[in-house]
Amino acid sequence: MLADIVEHLRCPVCHDGLRLGAEGVRCGRGHAFDVARQGYVSLLTGSQAPGTADSPAMVAARADFLAAGHYAPLARALAETVGTVIPPTTERPVVVDAGAGTGYYTAAVLDAVPTATGLAFDISKHAVKRAARAHERVGAFVADVWKPLPVADAVADVVMNVFAPRNGAEFARIMRPGGHLIVVTPAGDHLSPLVRELGLLSVDEAKEHRVAESLRGFAETDRREVRFEMELTREDVALVVGMGPSAWHKDHDHLTHQIRKFPEWRPAIASFRLSVFAHSRAIP
């Protein structure tokens, strides 16, 4: 799928356009990037070390948890929202998933918008390997959302940002006039009562303020709360803990011991805030 998205990419070194050839991806100035056998390309430069990238274990846990359908209501809500903000007259709309992980949400959106093309990137090559195979209309690459993105100016009809860091200035640059940014963040009661019972990292009270600060120049035009109950097995609980930020900060053996004490089935709340933003330059 790289052949279908390369026109929307730019060289991370010189910002020249990129083309795909037999020897990989290359710009007109000779900067070259190899294509992995899984079909993705890494557009990280030498100074961009993915020190906080999700590990293989975290990515595997996320893939298994999402494949079980636990977050399917969120995927449907996201797909419905994207379908609403893209005008039906738009030809070949482009959806950029910034911090796409395994591409689960990208694929849901592309299923709902059959004319769209997806650009999925993440700093974790382990996640991008899966994202490259998530859908026939997605192209995947490794990139750091904190750096200038290897995406051309004004190409995205929609930028998606689901549980990922935000780079407001770069999101504005890659969005077409009239485009939209859709941000999904966990709400305060997300994964209750597991957060309390297992001592997991919780959503801090300043989360909404920090989102707004990271998106200066954008205005929130719509918001919906997506909240539903889940029935999780002990294995599901281990997966949802292992795929999130607590996997970095909590002792794995201790968490495993705690989870083993749970009953076979455990209720938990999934709670998210789904916000639509437009850039101020596009707001009358």
Rank of each mutant, 00 (worst) to 15 (best):
S246C: 03
T45V: 15
G69S: 08
S214D: 08
I283K: 06
A79D: 09
T102F: 03
I182F: 08
S280M: 12
V35Y: 13
G30A: 13
H31E: 08
Y40N: 08
P284Y: 00
H180N: 09
I182E: 04
V183T: 06
T117Y: 05
M1C: 13
K129W: 00
V94D: 06
G30F: 12
V155G: 00
A36F: 11
A238M: 09
A72E: 12
I174S: 08
H209G: 14
A247G: 03
R10C: 14
D16L: 12
E225I: 12
V276E: 05
G69K: 01
R223I: 07
H70Y: 11
G46Q: 14
T221R: 10
A72T: 13
I123S: 02
R166P: 07
L43W: 03
G103F: 02
V151C: 06
Y105N: 07
V82E: 08
H209E: 15
A132D: 01
D189S: 15
A53C: 04
E225Q: 15
L274S: 04
A238E: 05
T115L: 07
S55R: 15
L201Y: 10
L215Y: 07
R196Q: 14
F272V: 07
R19A: 15
R166V: 14
P150W: 04
E23K: 14
E197A: 06
A57V: 12
L181I: 04
G46V: 14
T106P: 11
V96P: 03
P150N: 08
F277I: 00
E80A: 14
A127N: 02
R173P: 07
H209L: 14
A268Q: 12
E80S: 09
S280G: 01
G179A: 08
W265I: 07
L44C: 11
V25K: 13
V138N: 02
T106E: 10
E170N: 01
T233C: 13
A169K: 03
A143F: 01
V183A: 09
